[in-house]
Design a binder for these strands. Structure first.
Lengths: 214, 214
DNA sequence: TCCTTAATCCAACGATCGCTGGATAATCCC
DNA sequence: GGGATTATCCAGCGATCGTTGGATTAAGGA
């Protein structure tokens, strides 16, 4: 690993060091948790010195928060874009509501399968809420309300056979996280596992609505 | 906290110190994780000295394993007893298979609601498999196969409308863990939350079987 | 050219960590 | 009563932790 050049960066240059540190720290935090990761581990993974990590990201707690903010912002962006697409598809009225709901949830599953560290950070956040006091309203609530809102919108046409959508959505989200964890734990035949889980989720979603009339 | 008496314990006396340490350590590990808990924290919570903790439970890693073994053994015992009852109820042939399945899963939900640290330890185990290399086969597999077996047994009468019981059972288990985490996070109206989740689980289980004929 | 700003690293501080050797006290067994 | 055994605590070891002060290098601004 070549040593990074010291000195003031050139004008047009962005600052890749901070992103480098954040990416390395995110991977380590997701795998081992806050206390098992030393700042020297982060520095070594990013190829810089410990003091450089502190220079860019402040204290360890601030670095932790920055990692969560970065990952959750990416998730939120993807989900809100998918939500907008679903909304306009339903507003157009031409599409099938159930099919739209399938597609929306597929985006969620795809995203978490592609970035398993997102699931790891969510689980750590749920396990240790005392570390994330200020993140509650900024990330968790919008995602849940989005899916619930989509569920309600999709249910406008046909009645929704589901008296507790809140519990239903939460259970669905946790099932997805469990799927990602199981994928990370097993060795082979991940493709089949992915297919089977999508099939399960679709059948689950279909069960929320009355069967289509003849 | 009165200092514990040194010296060899009396004959008939059991050894409460080890259990005291294990209980305190389990609560701390469930709340904060392995690395965030110091042996001095465990000792203080148990009202003993650090050396006493080491004397009874050996290494910190051994203490961690002992906590998991203790909690998972309790869970396994409860579940296997409920499984035996469900099996004999089905073998007698008199009862309703769906009702038997409801009761079995209710036992699981009740247990985790009563001991939320069980969920915390399961999630930590899933998040950090490198810490639990030897626990995989001893605890995880039997629970899953038990529920799947019960599902299969309950399905002998009526056909099971579920091509992937493995995925289904896992998703159900994760939904229960998510329910426990949500219960711990919220403040009030836990009774309503419990009722709604049970209702959800029952409807979910019913969806696995074809609707009863008229 | 010279001063300012910014990035990087080195060295080290105080605190805490897991762990242990040894002293002391209480009980059992003979 | 008197060793043997066991439980408990005290004190301290070496290692690692998060954090910081200061030196060095490189670029911008005048």
């Amino acid at each position: 690993m070549p040593r990074r050049r010291p000195g003031r960066p050139r004008r047009g240059t962005e600052r890749p060091t901070r992103d480098l540190v954040l990416a390395a720290a995110t991977a380590l935090f997701a795998e081992r948790g806050f206390d098992a990761v030393g700042l020297r581990d982060v520095a070594a993974a990013a190829g810089v010195d410990v003091a450089t990590v502190a220079h860019h990201t402040g204290t360890k707690a601030q670095l932790y928060d920055a990692c969560f903010a970065r990952v959750f912002a990416a998730e939120r962006e993807v989900l809100e874009a998918a939500g907008e697409r679903a909304r306009s598809a339903l507003a157009a009225g031409g599409g099938d509501a159930l099919r739209t709901l399938h597609d929306l949830v597929d985006v969620f599953v795809d995203f978490l399968e592609d970035r398993p560290e997102t699931t790891a950070l969510w689980l750590r956040r749920w396990l240790e809420p005392h570390r994330h006091a200020d993140l509650d309203e900024r990330y968790a609530a919008p995602l849940y309300t989005l899916v619930e809102e989509l569920l309600a919108t999709a249910a406008e046409g046909g009645a929704l056979v589901e008296p507790t959508p809140h519990v239903t959505v939460r259970s669905l989200v946790w099932a997805v996280h469990g799927h990602v964890v199981a994928l990370a734990a097993q060795n082979g035949s991940a493709a089949r596992e992915r297919r089977e889980f999508r099939s399960f989720v679709h059948r689950f979603l279909d069960g929320l609505y009355p069967p289509a009339g003849p």
